[in-house]
Computed example of a mutant assay.
Amino acid sequence: MRIAFLLYDNLTQLDLTGPAQVLSRMPGARVDYVAAALAPVMSDCGLALVPTATLAGSGQYDLICVPGGYGCSAVMNDPETLDWLRGQAPGCAWITSVCSGSLILAAAGLLDGRRAGCHWAWGDYLPLFGAEFAAERTVFDGKFITAGGVTSGIDFAFRVVEHLHGPDVAATLRLALEYDPERRPGGTPATARADIVANVRTLTAQRLGHRDAEMRAAAARLMGEKS
């Protein structure tokens, strides 16, 4: 199985590295990290990521994973990346995302009429693109698999492994990676105090800035193309 993770400036590295660590160990997996060029791509925590293939020279993949991050709004308005996703989609067995990566898929017109996961603070943008936000850790809708925010990508990857290779393979990888997370209150809006949820919403709104306009512009363009 050929697997591609999309790289772009200001992505959230755990959206990518979490599921990549799991899926790269899946039987028969070959993983590429695809970007517009082969120059290092800077993540939002200052960790540089090195592409192994370019959009133009990547060939067809079996599974694509699009990570999220504050850089997603720029990608949602990038014709080269959106065209690559549209071109890959018919030949892909699985099209996936983590966090706000689903908004990039939505901007490409791939989630119209579908349920999709997203970071809880960004999910309200999905309906602008004709998708339905599902506040779930992993959402399956046909060949589209979308995860919630950031750490959801790890659980999402194990769900993919179990779906494709069965529970024993997933359990083997889970033990090899010693993945047995302790669920703590506060990790979701439903379990966090109201003041903490409000604080995160405020911080998110501050960091959105011009990105809100970029995402709405992408939605307006897509809706215009469909009309």
Results as ranks from 00 to 15, higher is better:
Met215His: 07
Gly69Val: 11
Asn77Val: 09
Met42Gly: 06
Ser152Phe: 06
Trp84Asn: 10
His163Ser: 09
Trp94Cys: 00
Arg216Asn: 10
Val197Glu: 03
Leu177His: 08
Val169Gln: 10
Leu63Lys: 01
Val98Asn: 11
His165Arg: 05
Phe129Pro: 08
Ala39His: 08
Tyr8His: 01
Val139Asn: 10
Ser102Asp: 03
Arg115Phe: 00
Pro167Glu: 02
Leu222Lys: 12
Val41His: 11
Ser24Lys: 14
Leu47Ala: 13
Gly153Trp: 04
Gly59Arg: 02
Glu178Gly: 00
Glu214Ile: 06
Leu6Ala: 12
Gln13Cys: 04
Ile3Gly: 03
Val161Cys: 05
Glu214Cys: 11
Arg183Met: 03
Val200Trp: 12
Tyr125Leu: 14
Pro189Asp: 05
Gly123Thr: 06
Cys118Ala: 09
Gly68Glu: 04
Gly209Met: 09
Lys143Cys: 05
Gly123Glu: 01
Arg137Cys: 00
Tyr8Ala: 06
Gly46Val: 07
Gly187Pro: 01
Arg221Cys: 02
Asp195Trp: 03
Cys45Asn: 13
Arg114Ile: 00
Ala106Asn: 04
Val197Pro: 06
Leu203Phe: 10
Ala131Tyr: 06
Asp83Leu: 13
Ala190Ser: 07
Glu136Lys: 13
Leu110Tyr: 11
Ile145Trp: 15
Ala20Lys: 05
Val66Glu: 09
Asp9Thr: 14
Ala170Leu: 09
Asn10Thr: 13
Ala131Val: 07
Arg2His: 05
Leu11Ala: 10
Pro40Met: 08
Asn77Asp: 09
Ala116Met: 08
Thr191Gly: 03
Ala134Cys: 14
Glu132Asp: 09
Asn10Pro: 01
Arg30Leu: 04
Glu132Arg: 15
Glu136Asp: 11
Pro127Lys: 01
Ile196Cys: 01
Pro181Thr: 06
Ala116Asn: 02
Thr17Asn: 12
Leu208Tyr: 03
Phe129Met: 05
Phe140Leu: 11
Val50Trp: 13
Phe144Glu: 01
Trp122Gly: 01
